[in-house]
Computed example of a mutant assay.
Amino acid sequence: MKLTTLLTSAAMALGLATAGVAADKTKVGFVYVGPVGDGGWTYEHDQGRKAVVAEFGDQVETVFVENVAEGPDSERVMTQMALEGADLIFTTSFGYMDPTINVAKKFPNVKFEHATGYKRSDNVSTYSARFYEGRAVQGTIAGHMTKSNVIGYIGSFPIPEVIRGINSAYIHAKKVNPDVEFKIVWAFTWFDPAKEADAAKVLIEQGADVILQHTDSTAPQAAAKAAGDVITFGQASDMSEYAPFPRVSSIIDDWAPYYIARTQAVIDGTWSSKDTWDGIGAGMVGIGEISDAVPADVKAEALALKEKLASGEYHSFTGPLNKQDGTPWLADGETADDGTLAGMTFYVEGLEGDIPQ
């Protein structure tokens, strides 16, 4: 009996010790709007998750749910993650903003990080990247390389993040090619390969020989490849399987350093709510390799612009610039402030069409 009691006690002690080790792990959750294999936005967020695992090993446990629709579904997923012991939850799409705030109120001891939004609280931080800096580089290349002078742009949703990108690409394409014209198709989705392919085909039928996208799949790349002489740029991820043509460069979102730093802050007990908005200089926005399909002088110009953006020598939104209706916005040499950019709901002068409401 004594031996049995000792064995039982030892087993219980071992169980408690194991539970203690498990409890010491920091549990980090990720909510994804698309599949991890989308080749774009969600793929790069999941690369960031994997970097957290590689950095911390047994100190952390990560969980993720993919293809989570914006709205009530996301609130349910976040709630379940919190109930299952998540210490930190990254919600990685703009439409998760209100659900994140709602769930955070119910779980004040859980830390939340919302990508691309603007609503914060004591346990909710926000983070985003200055994608518009990458659009300036893309616009420069696109303006030089278009032969038809028609550049197509696939928009996801008419939110400030997307509008900033359209404006930045247009401004810089126009700088190098005054005859350039933008045609914009709104897909009203982040990830839907069929809709994205259809949008690309419509733009190509309208004469576009360069396609930019703010949607997450590689479907526009495939449509451009099938069309022949149409140039594309990778979105959020390198999409290098379509290099060196039609994909001639890309914007790459590198979330890994941020995810590692914020996880470390939770482990250390130093996490606090803040807003982060970094760009090329901080490494959150990368410019994918510019392929040899781009003339050497254009490549050099694009890389020089990248360096000026990274150093802060140049700002993507530098006057003189007017709004679409011709009213003055930025005087000569004046640069846009972050507040205006964060809430941008207007096109710059020269862009045609209305922004959907």
Rank of each mutant, 00 (worst) to 15 (best):
A342D: 11
N109M: 13
T18Q: 15
E75A: 15
A236D: 13
T335A: 12
V298Q: 09
L83I: 14
Q357G: 13
D338G: 09
V68L: 06
Y170I: 02
E205D: 14
I211A: 04
P158I: 00
I151N: 07
Y32F: 11
F30L: 11
W271R: 04
M81D: 02
F346L: 14
D24I: 15
G165A: 05
E313N: 09
A219T: 04
P320V: 01
A11L: 15
V28D: 04
W271V: 06
R262G: 04
A51W: 07
G333S: 08
T215H: 00
A208K: 01
K147M: 12
A86M: 14
H114F: 12
I260G: 08
G165H: 02
Q324I: 11
T146Q: 07
V103K: 00
F94D: 01
F56M: 03
L88W: 01
I141C: 08
I204C: 08
A173Y: 02
G134A: 14
P356M: 10
A13K: 05
D38T: 00
E70L: 09
A51V: 07
V52C: 03
M81R: 06
A256R: 01
K195P: 04
P158K: 07
S168T: 03
F56L: 10
A173E: 05
K119S: 14
D122N: 15
G283I: 07
A208L: 05
L330K: 05
I141G: 00
K119R: 15
E313F: 01
I151V: 14
Y170Q: 07
T92Y: 04
S74H: 04
V185L: 02
I211Y: 03
H172W: 12
T5Y: 14
D354M: 10
A304G: 12
T340I: 07
A310E: 10
A222R: 10
Q138S: 14
G40Q: 01
G71V: 03
K111Y: 06
K201F: 00
Y32W: 14
F90D: 02
T26H: 09
D275L: 13
